[in-house]
Amino acid sequence: MNWKMSRVVRTVTDVMVVPIIVFGIYLIIHGHLTPGGGFQGGAVVASSTALLIIAYGSFRDYKKDFSSVESIGLTLFIFLAILGILLGATLFYNFGAGTGGLFGGRVAEGINPGYINTGGTVPLMNIMVGLEVTAALSLILWMMAKSSDSMEVEA
């Protein structure tokens, strides 16, 4: 991993990385209001990682960071699912809908744009799945880039 692309590619990458990450986080957080969600937003954020790796090519060892974030996201997702059983209902029960806490607002009936403080556990699960998908796809890209350079070609 010690190539470097031209100055044009690096400048366009510097300009475009922050809007791509902000758009991905918007897709994750507004998953219960607009089209999108955890998987789509995570894939968009991971594509910014692909852009950075292809343009710059030299990175320090991010493997443990990505792996920890992925494991934390999946564990919190399963914990939120099991919390439905512990609160006296079924698996994946939406225990936070309309209770007035975090993301506990009430929506109006019919077609409306909606508020962000609604949805119960659905936005929380969106954030967890977004963390998991971002870290997993970034880790796959990072490992492929790392090992594509040190691999010997068999003649």
Partner: peptide
């Protein structure tokens, strides 16, 4: 959105690697 992010960005990057 999923097809554009996964198919156009990530798959191309992995094929190039």
């Amino acid at each position: 959105i999923a097809e554009a992010a996964v198919g156009a960005a990530l798959t191309t990057a992995i094929f190039i690697f």
